[in-house]
Amino acid sequence: MKVLMKPIEMIAWFDLDGIPRPIRFRVNGEVYKVHQVSNISEEKLAGNRIKIYRCQSEIGGQPTIFFK
């Protein structure tokens, strides 16, 4: 699996607890729809708490897993 650390643009909705749920995101000008969020984890990177989302989408008819 190829790991790229690059910024993305994301559209999300927030549940009643204030947790964002991704709907779509854009990488390199291409827009991908999130079909399923399979896991949400929390990590600490350089002293900052971040949430890691494991999402599944389709690219060219093939299911693809993304981490955001």
Rank of each mutant, 00 (worst) to 15 (best):
I40H: 15
Y53C: 11
I8W: 02
M10G: 06
I19L: 15
T64H: 14
R49P: 01
F14E: 13
K2R: 13
T64Q: 06
D15G: 05
C55G: 07
V31G: 09
P22M: 01
F66L: 01
R49T: 09
P20S: 00
S41K: 13
P22F: 02
F25T: 01
L4I: 13
T64G: 04
S38Y: 12
D17E: 08
L16Q: 02
P63M: 02
L16F: 04
A12N: 03
R26F: 07
A46G: 07
K68E: 06
N48M: 09
G47K: 07
H35N: 08
S38A: 10
D15F: 01
Y32E: 07
H35S: 03
L45I: 08
E42P: 01
D15Q: 07
Y53R: 10
R26P: 05
V37A: 01
E42R: 05
A46M: 12
E58V: 08
W13C: 10
F14L: 09
Q36K: 15
R54V: 05
S38D: 15
A46T: 04
E42N: 09
A12E: 08
M5R: 11
G29S: 10
N28T: 01
H35V: 02
R24V: 06
I50F: 02
E9G: 13
E42A: 09
N39Y: 06
F67L: 14
L45N: 04
R26D: 07
L4M: 14
N28D: 15
W13P: 00
K33L: 06
Q36A: 14
N39S: 12
M5S: 15
N39L: 12
V31T: 15
N39V: 05
Y32P: 09
G18W: 09
P22G: 05
D17T: 01
H35L: 09
W13E: 08
G61I: 11
S57E: 07
P20F: 04
E42S: 13
G18A: 14
M1R: 01
D17S: 08
I65D: 12
I19W: 05
I19M: 06
E43W: 09
P20W: 00
K33T: 04
V37F: 03
K33P: 03
R26Y: 04
V3N: 15
A12L: 01
G47R: 05
Q62V: 15
Q62Y: 11
Q56F: 04
K6N: 15
M1N: 04
P20L: 00
K33F: 06
N48H: 10
K68D: 10
I50H: 05
N48T: 04
F25K: 00
S41T: 13
K44E: 07
Y53S: 08
